[in-house]
Design a protein around this nucleic acid. Structure first.
Length: 291
DNA sequence: GTCTTAACCGCACAACGAAG
DNA sequence: CTTCGTTGTGCGGTTAAGAC
């Protein structure tokens, strides 16, 4: 399994360090920025892939708060995956371990480094989806179907197990990964059926009705932003008055109206990663707002 | 004293939906 | 339809406590 190897996607991954107890591997993790991956001990799949611009060791410490209490789900902050790890442990008895890879862009500004790390994270998530056929269990807002998630510490709302007759729709099957095909500006990019492009103007999403779907904002042949929404029409309108540096166009791909929110995020991620694999960077305005 | 971790606060971004 | 407030996500900045 490539996604477990110490050279996955040409990175230099650390040894696996158990999260449930302090140990030598944990304290030896790099203090640099980079990417990390989480798996259940003794299992053959990943729970989570993430990135940090601070310290990987510190970030793993924030994730470890899932171990602090057996009876209380941790809050969503400072690590959004901690409630999810807690829920899976509570349900299945799993414990987890991590492996990190230092990634630094010393020649870039902090802002641009973050954009590159997030692009690389998307790429890893996509590679995992291609190799495994499904997503990591805790990315894209996925959650254990029999639990509901804690909110932030300030809200004070903790998650817990749901009653037998309830289900969390953030749990469930992944959509199959999108395969690389064509160029981002093409109408069949990643084997989807893209409509347009047409100028990004008020009402340009009128043909979409209330359909959810994916969209790509373009300047000529350059895709500069990729997004998703449960309502393309309203989402596109919210982009119209932004300070684009030129005259943007937009192409859309409508999806099944029954598509779940996390599934839209899976495909959006695949598209960003497909772009990343071609250009070695995310689209110009991805992961960073207009200046 | 230095290195590391915990805690608090808040920012940037994306999406949504209620109010107007 | 448009605007605006809220929420969720995923971090970063900062400081002080704690470990060594």
């Amino acid at each position: 399994m490539d996604y477990f190897s110490d050279s996955w996607c040409s990175l230099k991954w650390s040894r696996w360090a158990p999260l449930q107890n302090y140990n030598k591997e944990l304290s030896n993790l790099s203090n640099t920025s980079g990417l990390y991956r989480i798996r259940p001990i003794q299992k053959d799949f990943l729970m989570y892939i993430g990135q940090t611009g601070r310290s990987l060791r510190e970030r793993m410490g924030q994730l470890r708060i899932y171990t602090r209490s057996e009876s209380e789900m941790p809050f969503n902050d400072p690590h959004t995956a901690a409630p999810s790890l807690w829920a899976w442990r509570d349900a299945e008895g799993w414990e987890f371990e991590c492996s990190v890879a230092s990634v630094e862009f010393n020649e870039l500004t902090k802002r641009d480094s973050k954009q590159m790390r997030e692009g690389f994270e998307s790429y890893l998530l996509w590679r995992y989806r291609l190799e495994k056929g499904e997503s990591t269990l805790c990315n894209f807002g996925r959650f254990h179907p029999q639990y509901f998630k804690s909110s932030s510490r300030s809200s004070g709302r903790r998650g817990d197990r749901l009653s037998e007759d309830e289900i969390n729709i953030s749990g469930g099957p992944s959509l199959p990964p999108l395969n690389l095909k064509g160029s981002p500006c093409n109408a069949d990019w990643m084997d989807l059926d893209w409509k347009g492009p047409i100028p990004l103007t008020k009402g340009c999403g009128g043909d979409c009705g209330n359909s959810p779907g994916l969209y790509k904002i373009m300047f000529g042949d350059e895709v500069v932003y990729i997004g998703q929404s449960s309502s393309l029409k309203s989402r596109l309108n919210s982009h119209v008055n932004k300070n684009w540096e030129g005259d943007p166009e937009v192409a859309v791909c409508m999806t099944d109206v029954e598509i779940r929110e996390y599934q839209l995020h899976e495909w959006e991620n695949d598209l960003i990663a497909g772009f990343f694999s071609e250009y070695n960077r995310p689209p110009k305005y991805q992961f960073k707002n207009l200046e």
